[in-house]
Amino acid sequence: MTPRSRWGTAALGLLVLATAFPFYWAIVSSFTPEARLFQRPSLLPTTLVLDHYRALFTERNFWVPIRNSLIVAGATTAICVSIGGLCAYALARLRFRGKAPLLGLILAVSVFPQISVVSPLYLLLRRLHLINTYPGLILPYLTFAMPLTVWLLVGFFRQLPAELEEAAMVDGASRLRALWEVILPLALPGLAATAILTFVYSWNEFLFALSFTLGPERQTVPVAIALFRGQYQVPWGQILAAAIVATAPVAVLVLAFQRRIVQGLTSGAVKG
């Protein structure tokens, strides 16, 4: 092993440790009794209890924020991938006037700082009587999720050889049929990756969720966790348990689709 690669390995190890330790610590702490949390911390857990998790789903009724988050993030993802997908396909393939400015505009929308649109959006949603409703979160989420989806998918669609859909159309398929039968199956890894990213963004979103919900019946996971802290105490054990519960579905999702995302489906389509 050359000195350089030894240092490289060491640096890599440190990096992994630094990244993984907070997760480890959060998991361990979430199983540690509240009373022990602030006594001398030890790296290896001594007593493991399920108290925090039990409290989460009984006292706190954590199912409600989870359900809310699933509905909001799921609907946002579904709308983004279906409508954004069609939009991205058009932008990637069709020739029309003003395509470049349109793409620029979509990008511009996505770089707005969220905080700058909170107040106007609040007024708008109140007018529409959408405060503290699911659409009242889904619609604002589309403002950041849709540009992301469109940009990612335009890239994916552009990578697919145009000759494939030309062949499909010559073979008798309409453009939509060609999209459905040929392009979508090939774009699946890209669509899956985009859907997961959109879902994760929506799942983790905090500012809109805090601003546009009023009570626990519509609060999403991040908002619920943030509001755990009381006036006099911070229930760290429960917060960490909730964080683990909130991270788990996302982690599972990414791991489940990892191969799909990485796998290239296009091999053998054209020469080479």
Partner: peptide, 27 residues
Amino acid sequence: PQERDIAMVFQSYALYPHMTVRENLSF
């Protein structure tokens, strides 16, 4: 194209990579 009743062989062949040869032929 789909209403012209033509068949075309492309330089790159443009075979549908996710379909078997049978599915390609019958498409």
